[in-house]
Computed example of a mutant assay.
Amino acid sequence: MSAVDRLGFGCVALAGLASPRRARDLLEGVLELGIRHFDTAPVYGRGYSERLLGDFLRGRRHQVSIATKFGLPSGRAPRLPVGLAMRLNALRRRLQPPPAPTKPTDDPPAADAEPLPRRIERAEVESSFDASRRALDTDTIDLYLLHEALPASLAPAALDFLLQLRAAGKIGQLGVAAHGSRYLALTPAELADWDVLQYEYGPAWPQHAELPNRFPSKIHIFHSCLRGVARDGRAPGRALAGCVSANPGGRVLFSSTNLAHIRDNVGALGP
Rank of each mutant, 00 (worst) to 15 (best):
L253Y: 03
D107C: 01
P236L: 06
H62G: 14
L154D: 00
L146K: 05
L53P: 06
R122A: 12
R58M: 09
L57F: 14
P81R: 00
S127L: 13
R119P: 05
I219F: 07
L143E: 15
Q198V: 09
P73S: 09
S181K: 14
Y183L: 15
I35N: 12
R46K: 15
L174F: 02
S128V: 15
I66E: 08
P99D: 04
R182F: 15
Q63V: 15
A90Q: 05
R227Q: 12
A177Q: 10
D112M: 11
A131M: 00
D39T: 14
R214P: 02
G228D: 08
L159P: 01
P216A: 00
A149I: 02
A268K: 09
R92T: 15
N247L: 05
D232G: 14
S127G: 12
C243K: 12
R24K: 11
P271M: 00
R234C: 11
A178R: 12
L253H: 00
T40E: 06
P188H: 04
D39L: 06
Q164Y: 02
A23N: 06
A85C: 10
P98G: 11
I262Y: 11
I219S: 04
H220P: 02
G172Q: 01
E114D: 12
N247Q: 03
A192N: 03
A241S: 13
L57Q: 12
L186Y: 11
G8P: 03
M86N: 10
G242P: 09
D106Y: 00
R214H: 02
P101A: 03
A113I: 09
R122H: 05
S217E: 12
A100L: 14
G242I: 03
R24Y: 02
R182P: 06
A113K: 13
Y201A: 10
R214K: 10
P109G: 02
R238W: 12
A246D: 11
A90P: 04
I221D: 05
F161R: 15
G180L: 05
F161E: 14
S217T: 13
G202C: 10
V176H: 07
R93N: 04
S19N: 01
A110C: 04
W205A: 08
E190V: 06
I66T: 10
F222C: 06
V82T: 03
G180D: 06
P151T: 07
L52M: 08
L174Q: 04
G237D: 04
A18K: 10
F222Q: 07
F215W: 03
A135G: 05
P115A: 03
A131L: 05
V82K: 09
G270W: 06
A13L: 13
T187P: 08
G29R: 12
V82A: 05
G47A: 01
D137L: 13
A123V: 10
P101M: 13
L52F: 04
R79L: 08
I262G: 00
V196D: 08
R231W: 06
K170G: 00
T40C: 01
G249E: 08
T68K: 11
E200L: 07
L269E: 00
P99V: 05
F215H: 03
V4R: 09
L136M: 00
E32W: 04
L57A: 11
R119T: 03
K103C: 12
P78E: 01
R118A: 13
R76I: 06
